[in-house]
């Protein structure tokens, strides 16, 4: 009692809480599936978590409809994002307050992030696609973290599932990103943009030199031309490979996070999964940032690249 005065109340509370948490962890660990295996008995009913059996393709909660559970989640994300922006911009005031202020803060931060590498003019054009990708990935990842989200069952299948863990969604985002990159690249440089991938100009010059009699220079030119064509080919392949890397980065991270959380819930049902929820929240943000940021990065490269070559 005398110590309480010296060290204050908060330490006592911390000690009590740690003890409670520790007891909860130990009890749930011993009482759960792992404890049951060790002792050879049945797990206590409240700890009897079903072992995870992750399945990569999205489930169909309604057998007669071609709607997957990831689609439903994507729609929820879309509704949430739309609701947020709609509510914030419904009655806008010159002096922002509350939700409008928050949304404007986010907008400014994102605009600064994008206009920093892309410049003011392109920044405004790139803004919608980059930010929408970011928000969509983030919303999908974070909605999934609502406790009990994946436990709602419909016809024996989970009704809701993180849309990022359905490979169709990352692939779709990668294709959208790719299309926008090529569109802006082509729009910025017109036909010369294609020369980045199909560069036959040095080869033609080499042949020209060969036929005009300069044999040595001609062969050198042809060699350089072949290298240029090969480089263009590599460039084209790398642009296509980007889509694959985009897809599997997001899909892999999100699926791994989902499985990790499920496994942790199975092993230690109480307290410990909360740590992984925090980790998943952070990871979701990082993945969204990477997807949006890389799209921005490729857009900037596509718009700038030939400028640098010609100057």
């Amino acid at each position: 009692m005398a110590k309480k005065k010296v060290l204050g109340c908060s330490l006592n509370i911390i000690i009590i809480l740690s003890i409670v948490f520790l007891v909860l962890i130990v009890v749930s660990f011993i009482g759960g599936s792992v404890g049951a295996i060790i002792t050879g008995g049945e797990p206590l009913s409240i700890f009897a978590v079903q072992p995870p059996h992750p399945q990569l393709p999205a489930e169909h909660p309604f057998p007669n409809l071609p709607i997957t559970n990831t689609m439903i989640t994507a729609w929820i994300s879309i509704l949430v994002l739309f609701g947020l922006f709609f509510a914030a911009t419904r009655r806008m005031k010159l002096v922002p307050r509350g939700l409008q202020n928050f949304v404007e803060f986010f907008y400014e931060a994102a605009a600064n992030f994008i206009e920093d590498p892309a410049g003011k003019e392109y920044g405004r054009k790139f803004f919608p696609v980059c930010v929408t990708i970011f928000l969509f990935v983030l919303a999908n990842a974070w909605i999934n973290l609502i406790p009990g989200f994946e436990t709602i069952k419909m016809n024996g299948e989970p009704l809701l599932r993180n849309a990022n863990t359905d490979i169709n969604v990352p692939l779709m985002l990668a294709v959208v990103s790719f299309c926008f990159v090529e569109y802006w690249g082509f729009k910025a440089h017109k036909a010369t943009y294609l020369r980045k991938f199909f560069n036959f100009v040095p080869l033609g010059q080499g042949f020209k030199k060969l036929f005009t009699g300069k044999i040595k220079a001609g062969f050198g030119g042809i060699a350089m031309g072949i290298i240029a064509v090969f480089t263009g080919l590599l460039e084209a392949i790398s642009e296509l490979i980007r889509m694959v890397s985009f897809t599997f980065r997001l899909f892999g991270n999100m699926t791994a996070g989902m499985i990790l959380t499920l496994v942790m819930i199975f092993l230690i049902p109480w307290v410990v999964p909360a740590i992984f929820y925090g980790l998943e929240a952070f990871l979701g943000f990082v993945q969204a940032m990477i997807f949006g940021g890389l799209t921005l990065c490729f857009l900037v490269v596509a718009v700038m690249s030939t400028d640098e070559e010609t100057t």
């Binding site: 994300s77 879309i78 994002l81 739309f82 922006f85 709609f86 914030a88 911009t89 949304v103 907008y107 803004f127 919608p128 696609v129 930010v131 929408t132 928000l135 969509f136």
Partner: peptide
């Protein structure tokens, strides 16, 4: 659709 909605009601 989300892109369109956000462009017209948000950005």
């Amino acid at each position: 659709i989300l892109l369109g909605l956000l462009v017209y009601f948000g950005y």
